[in-house]
Design a protein around this nucleic acid. Structure first.
Lengths: 98, 98
DNA sequence: GTCCAATATCGGAGTTTTCCGATATGTAGA
DNA sequence: TCTACATATCGGAAAACTCCGATATTGGAC
């Protein structure tokens, strides 16, 4: 759990938005073909943020390297969901050190 | 209170360290000539982080622009102290949105 | 006024980030 | 196998960040 790496990952409004969207999948990804319990399909973020496919993939990769999301790869799809353990640990760490 | 600006300010280990040092002035700045109740003199950070004067000044300015610290200018000195209101509001915001 | 100390700002070099289009990889189905 | 789709990775351009030394600014002491 690298605090600086997490802060850098959060310090971009698009990545922050991705994490916030994933808090309420049924609200932000109601048109996803796959069940939301599997996680959020990468292409869903693309449609909502207006950035290119490669850029979205890079942002998601940054979140994953920071440990903020986990990926389930099923067939040709990548399903993303929040890593609540890391997020909670980070918030606690920040609250006690900042 | 711009959340992204605050996160960017925090996403650098030196600036984070500055804020953490200011939590316990008597521990980290015990050799300051001026009373610690006035705040922390800019040159104190310089001595402790090993960076140049201009770089330290820029880091402190970044923290100030983000609202994380306040400056009291007294004579030729600049005394910095944490802006606990902004910090607390930011932590609450982060806890409720992230 | 001059001189010195503390801080801020400027200019520039090197690094990192952000974004894109193009390409590669990997899976599913005809 | 061929084709289509989903995602990852590459290469490069533009912007932002980080750092420094040099210079400007400000205030206090003389």
């Amino acid at each position: 759990m690298d605090k600086t790496e997490i802060l850098k990952a959060l310090a971009h409004p698009v990545r922050m938005e991705f994490l916030e969207w994933m808090r309420e999948p049924e609200r932000h990804f109601c048109d996803q073909a796959h069940p939301l319990t599997m996680g959020i399909c990468a292409n869903q973020f693309e449609k909502r943020c207006g950035l290119s496919q490669s850029t979205v993939s890079a942002h998601l990769s940054t979140l994953e390297k920071a440990g903020l999301v986990k990926i389930d790869r099923v067939g040709q799809w990548a399903f993303y969901h929040r890593n609540e353990d890391t997020i909670a640990a980070f918030l606690n760490e920040l609250r006690s050190t900042l």
